[in-house]
Design a protein around this nucleic acid. Structure first.
Lengths: 137, 137
DNA sequence: TTAGATGTAAGTAAAATAGTGACAAGGTAG
DNA sequence: CTACCTTGTCACTATTTTACTTACATCTAA
């Protein structure tokens, strides 16, 4: 899943905005997906230590303050791709260019990915919560 | 297509490395795809003004020096996505968070995309050609 | 005219993504 | 302890993207 990341941010924002704990059905209603999807994503977030849930009892809750959670934390937790840019896979290794292009692209793509992640690292869940509740500009 | 971008870079690197003009079949052999794919991508690159081709006559060639072509130029030409990060599509607008999450994410994703593109803008086709022909480190 | 190249449309195959149903495991209230 | 609800997971189906291929009109050059 690819929009898992956005769903993860949505879930965490909900938890940050809500006073009490929220069940997967309730969260699902806001996100607009099946509760199973919510439980899958909260499972990833739990494994990453961003929230806690308990089997059998409704409700997930953050493990730390929202301003201590960056969007990069969420990105990693949601198993988003290591690189959003993909190299084509069957270059001809007998050709000098075909043989070297993968390494060259991996290098550049790595740098571009780092730039993207670095920007995500600067935004916290608190920033998102604030933006979400702000009246449309 | 998603790896179209990488294929585009591969094609341009080939042209930059080659002395004479190269036909779609020849290029296809190095990239490892069907010649039709090459012709499709060269079509995009031609529309973007990065190379020229002529119907009926074999061979594509760059319209300007390789150090005057950035990977961002290629990114745009290859119709790569405006944003590599995607927002989920059915949030519940009746929920405050559901109503505001899209705008909030679009904002952040736009910044992250800008960071990525900015990095791509700093790399030229010459840099890639150089890296490609460098012995493995 | 003939051979070979590009440009493009149309269609098929494969793969990634999304969505759903089922159920075991655990918790809580009565 | 029973009934009912919730989470965690698996397995399966559907939809959408992406990849690949065939076919052919158009054009060039010899």
């Amino acid at each position: 899943m690819n929009s898992q990341y956005s769903i993860a941010v949505h879930i965490l924002t909900l938890l940050d905005s809500s006073s009490g704990p929220m069940g997967s059905a309730e969260i699902a209603a806001s996100v607009g997906v099946n509760p199973v999807v919510i439980r899958t994503v909260t499972g990833l977030l739990r494994k990453a230590g961003l929230l806690t849930t308990q089997r059998g009892v409704a409700g997930a809750q953050l493990t730390r303050r929202a301003d201590q959670i960056s969007l990069l934390d969420v990105y990693r937790a949601a198993q988003a791709p290591d690189s959003v840019l993909k190299v084509h896979q069957h270059p001809n290794l007998a050709c000098p260019v075909g043989a070297g292009i993968q390494r060259a692209l991996d290098e550049v793509y790595g740098q571009a990915q780092a730039a993207l992640e670095s920007r995500l690292a600067e935004v916290t869940l608190s920033d998102i919560t604030r933006a979400v509740h702000q009246p449309a500009s």
